[in-house]
Design a protein around this nucleic acid. Sequence first.
DNA 1: TGAAAGAGGATATAATTTGTCCTGTTTATG
DNA 2: CATAAACAGGACAAATTATATCCTCTTTCA
Lengths: 156, 156
Amino acid sequence: MIITRQADYAIRCVLFLASKPVGIATMIGEIADSMGIPKSFLAKILQRLSKAEIVSSIRGVRGGFVLKRDVSDINLLEVIQSIDGPVAINRCAIDKHICGRSCNCSVHPIWIKLRALIQDYLSAVTFDKLVDTKGSIGTQKISLEGEIYGQRLSVR
Amino acid sequence: MIITRQADYAIRCVLFLASKPVGIATMIGEIADSMGIPKSFLAKILQRLSKAEIVSSIRGVRGGFVLKRDVSDINLLEVIQSIDGPVAINRCAIDKHICGRSCNCSVHPIWIKLRALIQDYLSAVTFDKLVDTKGSIGTQKISLEGEIYGQRLSVR
DNA sequence: TGAAAGAGGATATAATTTGTCCTGTTTATG
DNA sequence: CATAAACAGGACAAATTATATCCTCTTTCA
């Protein structure tokens, strides 16, 4: 599982904030209630999004969260990585030293390439491609995105 | 993490059996010792590989395991899936019902496509491309394989 | 018939993920 | 300036998953 539930929450959270008027801070409670995420769990997630400079936090009375950047400048990969750390296929794709056999393991290059493949795909999906498509799965916008890698990659 | 340690063991195990002369059964103990895998854990893994018809088991005295098919007819995806079940990016990519929001979730198609991408990549890697490359990471054979998806996917 | 070898269920251990709680800090506002 | 609202962050608890072990059963060769 590449994407944990935490990362999934984070993505929905960014999506939710993206739907709010610019400049208006939204409180944790409101996001949590709307998206069905445990409030104190979401607080942790927002802390990480904040450290990754994806959202800005406003403390004190009338505080909350806002997106720190334009939706077109936030992509799925960074949101996921801000929560889960490096996206990985397996341990040795991140750190060679974990697997002592890496240096003479013929499978290792496969993991490296697959990882790059996934990262490229996810980093190409910016949030402007995700907002405003409610109820319309498989819009041209998204389909186009999928075609980066050609027809073979269509959904089976 | 797409690939668990179990699946990693399974891959090495297939690789090990591929290096053995055809028709000679290898005992669990020998594989386990050679590859540094706990013996009784490996037994479970081999059971699954056997159910997936990737290896054949021979019971009784002088029993053991042999590959059931030619290495060119075994690919990474099926070995991984025989152990870990369906390769997944997240839960909703496997089962829509897990995530109630799927039907109006704009991210869902992304997971579906990424999953297909990964499956296509892994199923294209057959074991004939993995054997006989010891100590030569990045042979032309493997590099070629990676180029299915073009230059952008080179290792970063 | 006995020993070698895999089959498979039950159970234990460890790691990770998910979630909660509590105290501290910041800040608008009366 | 006091207070209440809101986030920050550490510690901890619960649940889930992954890893590993053990024991008994069945198969099969010699």
